[in-house]
Nucleic acid binder design. Sequence first.
RNA 1: GCGGAAGUAGCUCACCUGGUAGAGCGACAGCUUCCCAAGCUGUAGGUAGCGGGUUCGAGUCCCGUCUUCCGCUCCA
Length: 489
Amino acid sequence: MANDQNKFQAIISHAKEYGFVFPSSEIYDGLQAVYDYGQWGSELKKNIKDYWWDSMTRMYENIVGIDAAIFMHPTTWKASGHVDNFNDPMIDNKDSKKRYRVDHLIEGFAEEQREKGNEQLATSVLEQMDALLAKDDFAGLKKLIDDNRIKCAVSGTSDWTDIRQFNLMFSTEFGSTISSDDEDNKVYLRPETAQGIFVNFLNVQKTGRMKIPFGIAQIGKAFRNEIVARQFIFRMREFEQMEMQFFIQPGTQKKWYEYWKEERMKWHLSLGFGKEQYRFHDHIKLAHYADAACDIEFNFPIGFKELEGIHSRTDFDLKNHQEYSKKKQQYFDNDIDPATGKPYGNYIPYVVETSIGLDRMFLAVLSHCYEEQDLSTAEKQDSRTMLKFPPRLAPMKLAVLPLVKKDGLPEIARKIMDDCKSSFRCFYEEKDTIGKRYRRMDAIGTPFCVTADHQTKEDNTVTIRYRDTMLQERIHLDKVREIVMKAIQ
RNA sequence: GCGGAAGUAGCUCACCUGGUAGAGCGACAGCUUCCCAAGCUGUAGGUAGCGGGUUCGAGUCCCGUCUUCCGCUCCA
């Protein structure tokens, strides 16, 4: 465990030192739980994104993608349950360190009084509470708690912190007249990307002539004002989700839930990190919208943690959007129901969701591929740090290196660059010894290096050096592009 | 949010009981032309997280603040 913790620290350092991940606005001391992706990090992230997007939208003919806005109509979040579930004022007892929802605390007190026969007090307290909650009068609520000497069940004391609102959604003002008091102007930064898909369900279904079952995929940013956000990019306030909502007939959710569990696991395994790095974790306590849910957990250096969620969301979201918007969210199914011999007809589809955190996927790839190797021999101490990325995900695919920077070798190397750079990302370097240049490429995870040497001038062959094995082969110049292309496909 | 620890050059760290910052690695330029880092020469880079206080004088003591790490708590 101690070693894994050190490994995690080493990965964070490496990520910063080699341009993968920087703390946000670092020159101003950073911003808690916000990070920026650097020159190689953004490439890696993009490659992960593309890999997911392509496998979703190309490999499944019944899945299409959209890109919805981050801002959504405020009612969206009422329908989704986010406004009700994440707006609770909380209070902490300073002695027991226990945190309570203010309404629960006061209701508990009223209940006690009622049992003791103080019916009048109970009713009065509850009435006051409702009035104060409606006004968001936290000072008044605190006074109510103090005046009635409401105690903590654990510590038995009445030593309370101030009341604070823990709203997991970020909000901002919308429109030309800015008035922070005006609830009508308040818009949220989406706390999940899913709702952008749900509100577009019929648009996509009708214009794309989609037939159930079908899926809508989306990659985009989401924002959550986490109370405690830590562990590097594992839990961030601004993060990116890659998710797909799969619309199905009611009653078939069990089958599709199992189907997507399997499909998503296959996708992860296709990266070749090994089966033992993943496991399923079934949710016992289900979210307000789900009738079955599990996570795919990955073996991070900080332990097995959630990487992707697969949820059977029932018709919770579409049904609520129908209710709040007063617009029918149903689908007419022309397929014949074998039970009745007639079409299935109108229904609100059920949904199975697969939702993966892009930043977590990035961390999974980075931490799994990070390796420190001891290459010491009897004569000499030696070690290298490398990122053994699958070639298709590597930020840089090929380094082109002249063995020395004279005798016409740079010119040959430049020619190779010109031949390859339109096909994939290449890196040219002539400074320092060849060994040092190889090691620098290992550190950012470049899978291939080709070196032009004096023999190249005679027979047009170069050496290609493989990152993982450090072995070299001599190949013809014309083969370079082809070999790399094959590896990244 | 609570408790604990830390914050000095890109990185790792040093400066003992207060007297206006050093090393190694790295980076850059040049030499070397060498197929797996640490050969030679040179250069750049820090007002010690930030703010305040004590003092003739603070990186060094005190307070506040921000950030990070560890533990607890939380995580629809």
